[in-house]
Amino acid sequence: MRTVLVGLGLIVAPAAALAGPAATGTDDSTFVRQSHRRAVFQFDQRFSILNGKVVGINGLKGGIEWRGRWRAGLGVYRLSGGVPTRIPQPLEFPAGTRDEVRFRYLAAYGEYVFIGNRRWELSAPLQLGLGNYYTKYYFPDGGVLRTNRQVLYMVEPSVAAHYRVFRWVGLGAGTGYRQVFASGEKPEDQISGYIFFGRVKLFLGDFIKVVRGHERLFSQRGLDQH
């Protein structure tokens, strides 16, 4: 039975410069064509609809951004709680048995910013994931049975955009599609489908510059279009 997976996510992305000079004529790191590299860390919390239930998928990503246009790294994700399945239970299981499907995966991601400026950007993220899923059964007498883990592969292309409200914080959104493949028995609870997410991005490197420079926290300095 097919099930659409829809996600709403919260991403916090602190970034700190690693090496290299800033773009010519300014030390502001908000311009998309900055020349230095910097580390990017993101807490990626997605809320999804799976089998008719709203669930969370917790994720943590870390990587490198360079030339203001390329980002790449690794992330880990896991379903925050089990989701009731839609498949029939084995006939020998007693009445009142609960079942939940669970999954987790490791993802390599890449992202290309194909248009943008100091204020906003439009990018194309892509994730390639490897993980597993299994089903847990909870019996009325307190017993628990977990099925063998099955390997999953997933590809998740998407399009994302964000707009800097202030130099150190921005709001964004994105949409895409998650396609899941299985190396063995395919999951009967389909977890492929369209995804949607929202973002709140904290640019820690710029926040530190604002604080150290005793600048106004809620100013538009550094976001002027030239």
Rank of each mutant, 00 (worst) to 15 (best):
R98T: 11
W168M: 04
G142H: 06
A107T: 06
E185M: 11
G143P: 06
R199E: 15
G131K: 02
F103R: 07
G205A: 05
S192R: 09
R119N: 04
Q150H: 15
D99Y: 05
Q150R: 14
F196M: 11
F197N: 13
P125L: 01
A107Y: 01
F103W: 15
Y133R: 10
S183D: 14
Q127P: 09
V211Y: 11
A124N: 01
A107W: 01
G131R: 01
E188L: 13
A108G: 12
D141L: 07
N132W: 12
G116A: 02
E156C: 05
V155F: 00
Y163R: 01
N132T: 13
F114R: 04
E111Q: 03
G174L: 04
T97M: 00
S158P: 06
I195R: 14
Q127S: 13
F196D: 11
E100I: 06
L128Q: 03
A161E: 09
S158E: 10
R178A: 02
E111D: 04
L202P: 11
P94W: 02
Q190H: 14
A107R: 03
G116R: 00
E185T: 15
E111P: 05
G116P: 02
G198S: 13
F181T: 09
G170M: 08
E185H: 10
A108K: 01
T147W: 04
V200E: 12
L106N: 08
Y177K: 02
R118G: 10
E121H: 13
K209W: 06
R146C: 09
A173L: 12
R98M: 11
L130R: 10
T147R: 02
V155P: 01
R104D: 14
Q190A: 14
F207E: 05
Y137V: 09
